[in-house]
Design a protein around this nucleic acid. Structure first.
Length: 281
DNA sequence: GCCCAGGGAATCG
DNA sequence: CGATTCCATGGG
């Protein structure tokens, strides 16, 4: 990873990385394409505009210290994906998935923001998830540089169900409040889940109303960087029944979450990856 | 009105 | 337990 400074911008040269795929694969919901390859968004309350040209990533108006302290970690640039992916070359579907989506990195997102985002994600589509999160931030997030921060658990817990009606989150609104209450009162201590036993962490998250197996795995993978967590949705279920009748291979389990993400992105976007009769149901 | 969206919870057998 | 059924919502 080579870095240079140009005016007020910070430039990183990194191989094997796709900014667009990483920001658009459904793991985060607060970045938007601006056109011309530019993206703008927030991580927590920190705004960022950036772009990719070849292997060059330009972080606009970003000081080296900010990159070192935040963005390098956020984009997971310190994890060696080349080595991880070597284990994924042992079967056809995973190899194709790496070809197709191997530029995706698992972001290091804020656990609380991730928890709320994936509560909202249930039975929902990405554009609408983004809209609800946007409205949630402007409703009770603190105003910050050119936008709104993601609301704190306390700010959200201070809302009533009626307060949340402008979100148009539907039945998910009460789940958000339950999460906010459990986190703000300390009934659930999110930071402890970084190192907790994975199954204990699953159980803890699932005490929140509206958090089932799928949401819990997403929060562990995308919010706590637990790379073994393995969210199973309808698409992955199809892949499992069609490609992995005998179970998900051991060589991919340690980084199952990354493998899952590559496979998901591949079969979601390449209809020919799955035979017709498996496409529905 | 119908279908869809990267579920969850309740209720069986 | 696993499988099935019901639920609840907004957008196109």
């Amino acid at each position: 990873m080579k870095t240079t400074v140009q005016d007020r911008h910070f430039i990183v040269e990194i191989d094997d990385f796709s900014l667009a795929d990483t920001l658009d694969c459904g793991q985060c919901f607060r970045f938007e394409p601006l056109g011309g390859g530019n993206f703008r968004g927030f991580a927590g309350n920190r705004p960022l505009t950036l772009r990719q040209e070849g292997n060059r990533i330009t972080f606009y108006n970003t000081a080296p210290e900010e990159f070192e302290q935040h963005w390098k970690y956020y984009f997971d640039f310190e994890t060696d994906y080349q080595t991880i992916k070597r284990d994924f070359l042992q079967d056809d579907i995973l190899r194709k998935s790496c070809d197709y989506a191997g530029g995706i990195r698992i972001l290091n997102q804020d656990p609380w923001e991730t928890l709320c985002s994936f509560i909202i994600s249930q039975n929902n589509n990405i554009p609408r998830i983004k809209g609800i999160i946007d409205r949630l931030c402007s409703l009770c997030g603190e105003e910050c540089a050119c936008g709104y921060a993601f609301p704190t658990p306390e700010a959200l817990a201070g809302c009533s169900l009626d307060d949340l009606s402008p979100l148009r989150a539907g039945f998910r609104a009460r789940y958000l409040l339950d999460a906010a209450r459990k986190v703000s009162t300390g009934k659930i201590d999110l930071p402890s889940l970084y190192t907790a036993d994975l199954d204990e962490a699953r159980k803890t998250l699932r005490t929140i109303c509206g958090v089932g197996p799928k949401v819990a795995e997403c929060v562990l993978l995308f919010g706590f960087h637990r790379l073994e967590a393995f969210p199973v949705d309808v698409w992955i279920k199809r892949a499992l029944t069609y490609f992995y009748q005998d179970g998900f291979p051991e060589y991919a389990q340690r980084y199952g979450g990354i493998a899952q993400q590559y496979i998901f992105h591949y079969i979601r976007n390449c209809p020919e990856a799955i035979p017709d009769e498996y496409r529905r149901k």
